[in-house]
């Protein structure tokens, strides 16, 4: 299973990447929306975990890109900061599958991720 992890916070991304790899996932990390778009042009990950606030393209824009332009049903889990509910709602409207707000437990993310993968 390949996970595309998009987060501009390198520390958190490194932590999550380690956790995901430990659970047996293959992880590709991108630190901004531009890189993620470029990666999506050539690759099809099984699931996407992306932060809402990112340089170049926000998580919302990326969801639109995946759902509308690429017409992919790849599950998308968004990571948002607490109090960013408005963006979360927008993300859901655009086709995000799940969200998790910071601070979060990596174990919880794993559970959500597994659940989404099971659905597909």
């Amino acid at each position: 299973m390949e996970v595309l992890l998009a987060d501009d916070d390198e520390l958190l991304a490194s932590l999550l990447s380690f956790r995901l790899k430990k659970s047996g996932f293959k992880v590709h990390f991108t630190s901004n929306g531009k890189e993620m778009k470029e990666y999506m042009e050539t690759h099809r990950p099984d699931i996407i975990v992306c932060d809402i606030m990112m340089p170049y393209f926000s998580g919302i824009e990326l969801i639109t890109y995946v759902r509308k332009e690429l017409s992919l049903d790849t599950p998308i889990i968004i990571i948002s900061s607490a109090g960013n509910e408005e963006n979360v709602l927008s993300a859901f409207e655009l086709g995000a599958n799940d969200f998790i707000s910071k601070p979060f437990s990596p174990s919880e993310l794993m559970v959500r991720l597994t659940r989404e993968l099971k659905k597909t």
């Binding site: 916070d9 520390l11 958190l12 932590l15 910071k102 601070p103 979060f104 437990s105 990596p106 174990s107 919880e108």
Partner: peptide, 14 residues
């Protein structure tokens, strides 16, 4: 690093 991560993680990891 630890102070930064503290803001982002919760539960047993924290």
């Amino acid at each position: 690093i630890l102070m930064d991560l503290r803001k982002d993680v919760s539960g047993s990891t924290r």
